[in-house]
């Protein structure tokens, strides 16, 4: 049937959780060993393994429950999601070099434009005012130091 899928979305959730649990369990096997003579009580890997076991058991229950059910496929994720995420990643990569306030001010303009805003004067004006307000609040008032980058002199 169109719009229907034999795979319930919860099956994917269960599969991801089981795979994650398996990877995490393998990671616990790589923890440093504590000499028996020094160890009192549970080893460092025991508690995480207990939690992973519970999580995987719950995921299996979720998967089994979803096996007999059908549900409409989840809507496709529009390309705007990937574009927005790419912009966020780019902003985080750039900000240690350009400074936090200048980068995020530019990111505000770029994200607004990406989301369809074309009133450039308003977009740039709001971003500049917001950037200045953030600088005054966090740096000047709360005394938190933020990376200033090459444009730091503009902020005094």
């Amino acid at each position: 049937m169109r719009g229907q899928d034999w795979r319930h979305p919860d099956l994917a959730v269960a599969a991801v959780v089981v795979a994650f649990g398996a990877a995490a369990f393998v990671a616990t096997l790589g923890f440093d060993r504590v000499p028996e003579a020094l160890m009192e009580g549970m080893g460092p890997e025991r508690f995480p393994q207990l939690v992973i076991g519970t999580m995987v058991l719950l995921a299996v229950l979720l998967g089994v429950r979803a096996l007999g059910l059908s549900a409409p496929a989840l809507p496709r994720i529009p390309p705007m999601f990937a574009a927005t995420l790419a912009l966020l990643v780019a902003a985080v990569v750039v900000f240690p070099h350009l400074g936090l306030v200048p980068t995020m001010t530019a990111a505000m303009v770029a994200l607004g434009a990406l989301w369809g805003e074309r009133r450039w004067h308003l977009l740039v004006g709001v971003a500049l005012a917001f950037g200045l307000a953030v600088h005054l609040l966090f740096v000047r008032t709360l005394g938190i130091s933020l990376p200033v980058g090459p444009f730091g002199f503009l902020l005094g």
Binding site: T105, M108, V126, F138
Partner: peptide, 22 residues
């Protein structure tokens, strides 16, 4: 509008995540 609101939220989020431990 969303195009003004959410970029401001992004700004606050990045500062919020960075500022406590730098």
């Amino acid at each position: 509008p969303n195009a003004f609101l959410w970029p401001a939220v992004l700004f606050c989020s990045v500062i919020g995540a960075y500022a406590p431990n730098q």
